[in-house]
Design a protein around this nucleic acid. Sequence first.
DNA 1: TTATTAATCTACTGGGTTTGTAGACTTTAA
DNA 2: TTAAAGTCTACAAACCCAGTAGATTAATAA
Lengths: 143, 143
Amino acid sequence: MLSKKCKYAIHALVYLAERYQQGPVHIQDIAEKQRIPKKFLEAILLEMRNAKILHSKKGKGGGYYLYKKPEDVNMIEIIRLMDGAIAMLPCVSLNYYEPCEECRDEKTCGIRDAFTGVRDETLKLLSKSTLAHMLKRQKELNK
Amino acid sequence: MLSKKCKYAIHALVYLAERYQQGPVHIQDIAEKQRIPKKFLEAILLEMRNAKILHSKKGKGGGYYLYKKPEDVNMIEIIRLMDGAIAMLPCVSLNYYEPCEECRDEKTCGIRDAFTGVRDETLKLLSKSTLAHMLKRQKELNK
DNA sequence: TTATTAATCTACTGGGTTTGTAGACTTTAA
DNA sequence: TTAAAGTCTACAAACCCAGTAGATTAATAA
């Protein structure tokens, strides 16, 4: 399951994607419209800013806005940033690999294969899921 | 990520699958060989017994053994039992559905689709992953 | 019948993570 | 120069995971 933090991040991003190239959006605005606790959202946006997904502008008339294009932001990078590994087992993770404590010997472990397959499929599907796709889908459903 | 509980469960099951139809196996034996805290393992095995995956025999010469055939126990049922939902979002879960707090309106949410796809693929792959497969794979790797 | 073995059950606990809050500080535009 | 808005550090409540303790029940062997 994705954490609340990650879900908040996705909702905030879709909201910002809707307003792409329309200038900075206040944290307060995002927080109210998406019903996210403002202070918590601050930390989330800051993290995405540090990851160069968002930019911010300080002072009056400031706020956050998408740095990358909506078609260049996919779910994989958001999930990795917010929650960490995509894989269901650490010993099968590409970006957050750790040897399995439980396994006596990774090389002869019969369990890993299945989860490698799941990881690959998830990676394939979610790296194709961009903010642009989600926005498009949202508009379709609102017709 | 799967919980330790779930990983322990899978390892214990593979261990029991190796000893299928060879009589009851002591908790103590499983705990030592798979390096799982005994008391914790007790709770795990009990849960799987209640779910009719295992049977147990009390008293001297007792222990746990597979009730289902190794080819009839797949990863999906184990994960659901130990960790709950397979899906990454509650609003997309088949067995543990809950409406998304974050979403204003589920019907017009552009986010869900992507995660429905991931859920379906995961379900497809992991319901084909049985203890029998894992055991076979383990034997291959040990050659 | 009794002793022993091993599973069953209830309750509890420590620690870490997640979620969220408070408040001082900095930057910018008008 | 003042008000608006992001930045940063610190803290705290709530929850859950992982693991422990100990009494109880059931089965077997002697």
